[in-house]
Design a protein around this nucleic acid. Structure first.
Lengths: 261, 261
DNA sequence: TTCGTAAATGAATGGCATTCATTTAGTGGT
DNA sequence: ACCACTAAATGAATGCCATTCATTTACGAA
């Protein structure tokens, strides 16, 4: 008997709601009212969208593209902790269950986001620059994009490429670049996997706290490590994550370059 | 008024419980009964542990070591999806809230597990073998241990070493090995970070589905990548994750070796 | 007109980590 | 010997979460 019930917050019909509690006749008994006949208050308060009746709307509210961009907006504002199906639905002025007409699970949403991000990775240097410079630009770009989205890494790392067309397109660009650079066909995928593994691991480093290696009270029992940490801190003014990434990437590039014929 | 209430499953006093429902006087009114005076059924049915009264037990049931090994057992049996605070408590015949006297959060449990695993990584070759061979053995061992525990990677990657003494001990061994091999002090940490990043990323690969790179219906639009995938499949009979790991690791070892003096 | 399907709402459901009041046991001080 | 304090357990919430299902409504094809 829903004579009194709550609504989604931030998704209220001001004509009927007081203090977050809606009072009135139950929805089934309320006469339908076409959108064009709604009170003028609706158009003057766009920040409080009109409540949608149950049932299929005249024009679809959701699709995968809309969900993807809302998810990205939400991640930008609230981070991955804030990305819940409920919050995503709220940001789209929709009931949580409505999302499941377009995605089968939250993981699906993450895959949509991942594939969008893959399209932001810069592969333009392949074909335009020497292979090693192209790999360098691609790798830095790839790391920078995903260092802001590390919660996706466990998803990407085991994601079949079929489910991610933009990601696949990225692999195609890199594959073509390596083939033209003289990499033997059968080593290309392994080389990409090796580079990508390094990139994913390095993306986490970017987000690590600055004092992650401070041995604290255990400094005496770890003299070699402690000295190495101190020496790094004294030496460089670059970000430690960038130094390590550069070091490893250059090692990989020169090591993999030896495979070419 | 708990005259009728449920118990934790698998944690029942057979003398008082029927069909998962306990009938009888509430705990406050039940006379206390010392453990030595308990019915003999207790000792003959150890698989159904006696229900513990509320209040501090005579000897402590939990500590961090007990929690850690229970967590590892649970992970082995049910995977990380099965590692919940409730399941962990159940496996220890304890109420979930009891765990919080010894850890502050589930993340704490993961850190305990991580640090235990770090002690399983083989660093014995440092000092006993040439530096490159020592790095090789360490890296393979490290990857193998954590490929079965990938959900820990997001935790480790940003974990201050102070909170993980065994992990710190591992770093100390590697640092000493690299110093003795002639690596300049200020490059040692960066080298370890680069290797570790590659290792973490590669640990995910191990768990990826075999057909992760099958382009499916999009094969025509990705000729270079498709050819590379096919060529790898035809070529090798080794596990693709192992081939890529070997390739990248050897590249890193030879690249980093150039830093020595 | 009727029927089937797509896309929305609304109301559960069960599981989750965590918190808090309460109970009990040991310990250190007077 | 008593008393206060603290540690370590239980039991009962709390609030959030992803997901499911019945229901409602709209549109398009037969």
């Amino acid at each position: 008997m829903p004579f009194i019930y709550e609504n989604y917050s931030g998704f209220r019909d001001v004509t009927e709601v007081v203090n977050g509690i809606m009072l009135g006749t139950p929805p089934a008994e309320r006469p339908t009212m076409p959108a064009t006949a709604r009170p003028a208050t609706d158009s003057r308060q766009p920040e409080i969208p009109a409540k949608r009746r149950a049932g299929r709307p005249s024009s679809a509210v959701l699709d995968q593209a809309v969900i993807t961009s809302a998810a990205l907006r939400l991640i930008g504002k609230s981070g991955y902790d804030g990305l819940t199906m409920a919050a995503l639905a709220r940001s789209l002025h929709v009931a949580p269950s409505a999302l499941y007409n377009h995605v089968t699970s939250k993981r699906d949403v993450l895959v949509l986001v991942e594939d969008h991000l893959a399209s932001l990775v810069d592969v333009s240097a392949f074909g335009a620059e020497p292979w090693d410079e192209a790999v360098r630009q691609w790798a830095w770009s790839y790391r920078d994009v995903f260092s802001k989205h590390t919660p996706l890494i466990p998803v990407i790392a085991v994601l079949p490429v079929t489910d991610a067309p933009q990601t696949l397109a990225m692999y195609e660009s890199v594959s073509e670049g390596l083939r033209q650079a003289g990499f033997p066909q059968e080593r290309i995928v392994s080389s990409i996997v090796a580079l990508e593994s390094f990139i994913f691991g390095s993306a986490y480093d970017v987000t690590a706290p600055a004092d992650i290696f401070d041995p604290g009270s255990m400094a005496e029992s770890t003299p070699n490590f402690t000295a190495a940490v101190r020496s790094l801190a004294e030496q460089g003014h670059e970000k430690p994550a960038d130094v390590a990434f550069s070091l490893g990437l250059e090692a990989l590039i020169s090591g993999l370059g030896a495979l070419r014929r």
